[in-house]
């Protein structure tokens, strides 16, 4: 009985830690995104609330909390109200299987990477619920684009993970990070971005599409669809969609770091930190978060630089560009691993 209580307690701690980590990063990200995009546009960005405008997220939150909650008259009320909750919930799920340090993981699942791919695909349902429940033509169009986009890009996304999984021989994210711990000559890290460059490019493109960010933000392209699937949402429900979107951003970047950029490992630094006792976890988390923000900054840079793809190009790029590339990479990895006599 006490074992059961203990495991429930452990699960609760994991859940709270995941939500806390994501929430803090999301709050910071909303500020960072506006600031980075502003600097790319040669503007200042938010600079009134607090030093460097750092309190802007809190001001935004208060604004959204106090706004009127509007439900359209012709909306499907149950689906309309359930959609933001589902979006938030489904966005949280994949984070459980991503570790930010050795053992610092909510649930080290044996089928970890596959679990992430599976629950990440659920968020499409929430978007479709919002699109349908709003009973609005712009929402509906945005929802259909989301469905087409996420179904098309899910396949290259999963296939691009396959090469890494084949090398490691495990689906657990902890094992995948541990497999990238060593380095050539002690300084050049053995990250999978060097072993799997094709997979890295495919994964990067596909994960941006799954996040729905520029250049693949067709589901909510504001110039044609007002705001896509969340056109009719206001106040707190709108905030939940935005929150879910930024959680996708954090989780996608964290996954990229885990699979291709060595997770919490950094040559010279992490081996030195091993002798620090409990402090080594601080170093690991710092390394992981630093890498994560490097990826996030890259994607913000992309957003500030590129334009939106056209609808007809978007599906073609996924099916005719990324999918063959991902398949080629799987075959190539298989051949090389077989020639070398297993992983």
């Amino acid at each position: 009985m006490s074992e059961l209580v203990w495991s429930i307690l452990k699960a609760l701690v994991g859940v709270v830690a995941v939500i806390l980590f994501l929430s803090l990063n999301v709050l910071f990200l909303t500020w960072m995104e506006r600031k980075v995009i502003a600097r790319i546009h040669v503007r200042y960005g938010p600079n009134r609330a607090g030093p460097f405008g750092l309190l802007q997220p809190i001001a935004d939150m208060l604004k959204l909390l106090t706004k009127e909650d509007i439900v359209p008259e012709k909306a499907d009320r149950i689906v309309f109200n359930l959609a933001p909750i589902m979006a938030f919930l489904f966005a949280l799920l994949p984070a459980a299987a991503i570790g930010i340090g050795s053992g610092l993981i909510a649930a080290d699942l044996p089928a970890g990477v596959l679990y992430i791919a599976a629950v990440a695909s659920l968020s499409t349902i929430a978007v479709l619920m919002a699109a349908w429940g709003s009973n609005n033509k712009y929402s509906l169009l945005g929802g259909m684009r989301t469905a087409a986009q996420s179904l098309s890009y899910e396949i290259p996304l999963v296939l691009s993970m396959l090469g890494v999984v084949a090398i490691v021989g495990s689906l657990s994210t902890q094992d995948i990070v541990e497999a990238q711990s060593s380095a050539w000559f002690g300084i050049i890290p053995k990250w999978f971005i060097f072993y799997q460059p094709i997979a890295f490019i495919v994964f990067l493109s596909a994960v941006v599409a799954e996040m729905g960010r520029i250049p693949f933000d067709l589901p909510e392209s504001e110039s044609e669809l007002v705001a896509g699937f969340h056109t009719e949402y206001s106040g707190m429900k709108f905030a939940m969609f935005m929150f879910a979107e930024y959680i996708h951003f954090v989780v996608g970047s964290a996954l990229l770091v885990t699979l291709f950029l060595g997770g919490w490992h950094l040559p010279v630094v992490t081996p030195l930190a091993e002798s620090l006792g409990v402090l080594k976890y601080v170093v690991q988390v710092a390394v992981f978060v630093a890498k994560m923000y490097a990826v996030i900054f890259l994607l913000m840079w992309v957003r500030g630089t590129l334009t939106r793809t056209k609808v007809n190009d978007m599906l073609g790029f996924g099916w005719k560009g990324l999918l063959p590339l991902a398949l080629f990479n799987v075959v190539l990895t298989g051949v090389v691993l077989t020639l070398r006599g297993g992983a």
Binding site: A118, S121, L122, I125, L128, A131, G143, A148, L151, E154
Partner: peptide
């Protein structure tokens, strides 16, 4: 993730 999304897509 797959079949239900396709169903919803078809309904829409």
């Amino acid at each position: 993730g797959g079949v239900v999304v396709l169903f919803l897509f078809a309904v829409m």
